[in-house]
Amino acid sequence: MKLLPTDPIKRLSLKLAVTSFGFLLFALFVMPPLYDAFCEITGLNGKTGDKYEAVDAVVDTSRDIKVQFVATNNSGMPWQFGPEVKTVTVHPGEQTRINYRVKNTTGKDMIGQAIPSLTPYKASSYFHKTECFCFNQQALLAGTEAELPMYFIIDQDLPEHIKTVTLSYTLFDVTDRFSKEELLSMVVTDQ
């Protein structure tokens, strides 16, 4: 079976068309994951990694790292949202728990999604979260509130010159992405 036409013009045109289609597929299916991988390696945009499995590590008490917590509501997200404590000082290697508080002040059941971002970017790959509310969406019934815990460890290999890191969470309204049943199945209650 011959795959390509014998006429050289048609042959070349077909090859070019296929190449062009290949670039479309490249843009759609290769570039986004490639970019994500790139962000993960470089810490670009301060994206912190997924769930981290804690390993036994020595706590480096000689170093103090100041961790600042900030919160931003994206537009159209009226919930009250913020950290309980705005700054903690930790040693590399020790696990720390902090809480954010969230309250659905509206009369509607809603789902929120918190997106973390860390500055400086260089610290992103040294900031490990063993548990984080940002791994899931948070569904809150109208008028209810919840405490959102986050456990983190700062890696002992954090570059020497970094002494302060700022972790920001931006809360987005993602209610539209889920059905009512899904919402009810993922409602969080106050611990």
């Binding site: 945009n45 301060g46 994206n74 997106i115 971002s117 500055t119 700022t166 931006t170 987005f172």
Partner: peptide, 8 residues
């Protein structure tokens, strides 16, 4: 200033 991300 990028929504969802911080820059310094």
């Amino acid at each position: 200033a990028i929504p969802g991300f911080t820059n310094d």
